[in-house]
């Protein structure tokens, strides 16, 4: 897993660009202040796609949980954020990448209350519940990639 060699996310079906705001942004995560920055960037992206207040709160909360995981368990890393899709189908996609120790048992890590960091163990499982799309890739010694996406349904 070598994220520096290119985008770790595989191209989705609607990855083609949709103007300037579809350009991805990379936010390094190495301090608590970076976790705050991740929240601000996620909030701005959700505003750009016109997401509802509750959907924005869910996504930004998930971003906060995942960024803290990257910092505390992954030993730091980065978040890549992009707006993908067109028009009313636009969504915000965030990918958290670290090259930390990785997760030996993903199934267990996704269980509420399972924690190795002295927290409540709600980070991963909570983020999964809060986002519409959730994907995780990890193996011992190979770091962790978590990709989430969310949007607001439009009538």
């Amino acid at each position: 897993m070598r994220p520096e060699q290119g985008r770790p996310t595989r191209g989705g079906t609607d990855r083609e660009s949709d103007g300037a705001d579809a350009a991805g942004e990379v936010i390094p995560i190495h301090t608590g202040a970076d976790v705050s920055r991740v929240r601000r960037v996620a909030t701005a992206a959700m505003a750009t796609i016109g997401a509802s207040k509750i959907e924005t709160t869910r996504m930004v909360t998930a971003a906060s949980e995942l960024a803290r995981n990257t910092l505390e368990h992954g030993g730091g890393g980065e978040m890549r954020i992009a707006i993908v899709g067109r028009m009313s189908k636009r969504k915000v996609e965030m990918t958290f990448i670290d090259q930390g120790p990785g997760i030996p048992d993903i199934h267990r890590a996704l269980t509420d209350g399972y924690s190795t960091g002295g927290g409540l163990g709600l980070g991963l499982s909570g983020a999964k519940r809060l986002c519409k799309e959730f994907e995780i890739k990890s193996a011992p010694g190979e770091g962790t990639i978590v990709k989430v996406a969310s949007w607001t349904e439009r009538p």
């Binding site: 509420d112 709600l122 909570g126 519940r129």
Partner: peptide, 14 residues
């Protein structure tokens, strides 16, 4: 507490 925050906290499991 904002309503959206309350909803999110419960969904988060807190």
């Amino acid at each position: 507490m904002r309503p959206a925050v309350a909803i999110t906290l419960v969904e988060l499991g807190m």
